[in-house]
């Protein structure tokens, strides 16, 4: 399966998990899926066999609420078992909670509270530099998350330490729980903000396009002396018109009818991409 179709297959897994647990953050799960797919299936040196290898690439999902998308990826990658996730997600006593839980294989750090991932990854990248290891560190943040001041503390430090082994991705879907990011707390000009903090900035015009993401991640690898941020323009709720670009689908759990519709839309898109 090509990565573009795989992202849709994984979307179906995520929606299934949400339905099983009657919980989750579907909008962000859908917008971030190509980013995770490209990272886990094309970019990162990471697998269950090398889960504790000191040279593995590091990944932190700073927008921890996109956990169902992350579960789908970790299961497909062989870290977790999808059936176990479906049985346990959001259930009493289960380790499969709504945010990253590093008691589970494949998850480096706990998150959930926003604005932590970038500074933590600065530490991981700094450790790599100190030890002369060539692993890379990836962090995925939401755009609403960027209102947290700690993000910018981390951004300053990453440039100060010349962390070219660090690559941040902003899932720029332009919606947060209360509405449009620019109305809640404006971020634009986001590119200029990161640039002024000393980062190499790559605009990914379509952040739901794996080919475009691939090119951007390759450019990040080639960028020396400074960290890189991908501003990936994505669509919240990507994959089905009933949830696309709708803030009220931030953590909406689909009804039976909506579920059928979403799965049909995702399946159709997956098939189309497989045949493309």
């Amino acid at each position: 399966m090509n990565l573009s179709a795989l992202a849709y297959d994984l979307r179906m897994d995520a929606v299934e998990i949400i339905r099983a647990g009657k919980a989750g953050h579907i909008g962000g799960d859908m917008s971030v899926m190509e980013i995770l797919t490209e990272l886990y299936f094309a970019q990162m040196r990471i697998s269950p066999e090398e889960a504790e290898d000191p040279d593995r690439d590091r990944f932190v999902l700073s927008k921890g609420h996109s956990m169902e998308a992350y579960y789908a990826v970790l299961a497909r990658k062989g870290f977790l078992d999808k059936e176990e996730i479906l049985k346990g997600f959001s259930q009493f006593g289960s380790p499969y909670i709504g945010h990253p839980n590093n008691k589970l294989p494949g998850i480096e750090m706990n998150s959930g509270s926003l604005g932590h991932g970038l500074p933590v990854c600065v530490g991981m990248a700094k450790a790599g530099k100190m030890d002369g290891r060539d692993y890379r560190v990836y962090v995925v943040m939401g755009d609403g998350e960027l209102a947290e001041g700690s993000v910018w503390e981390g951004a300053m430090a990453a440039a100060q330490y010349h962390l070219d082994n660090l690559c941040a991705v902003v899932d720029r879907n332009r919606l947060q729980i209360s509405g449009n990011t620019e109305e809640v707390m404006g971020l634009d000009d986001l590119h200029a903000k990161f640039r002024s903090f000393g980062w190499h900035v790559i605009d990914v015009a379509d952040g739901n396009d794996v080919a475009e993401l691939h090119q951007a991640f390759e450019e990040a690898k080639e960028t020396k002396g400074k960290p890189t941020v991908l501003i990936a323009n994505t669509v919240k709720g990507k994959g089905s018109p009933i949830m696309e670009n709708r803030a009220d689908w931030h953590h909406h759990v689909p009804t039976d009818e909506e579920y059928e519709r979403i799965m049909a839309d995702l399946q159709a898109e997956k098939t189309r991409r497989e045949e493309a």
């Binding site: 000191p54 590091r58 480096e108 750090m109 932590h116 500074p119 933590v120 990854c121 600065v122 530490g123 991981m124 990248a125 700094k126 450790a127 790599g128 100190m130 030890d131 001041g149 700690s150 503390e153 981390g154 300053m156 430090a157 100060q160």
Partner: peptide, 24 residues
């Protein structure tokens, strides 16, 4: 073996955690 974070205590602690997760 020394890291200066500037006047940024949140960053100080998160960076320390990231370093620690990588064996420091």
């Amino acid at each position: 073996q020394f890291v200066e974070t500037g006047i940024a205590e949140q960053n100080l602690v998160s960076i320390a955690a990231g370093l620690a997760r990588c064996g420091k």
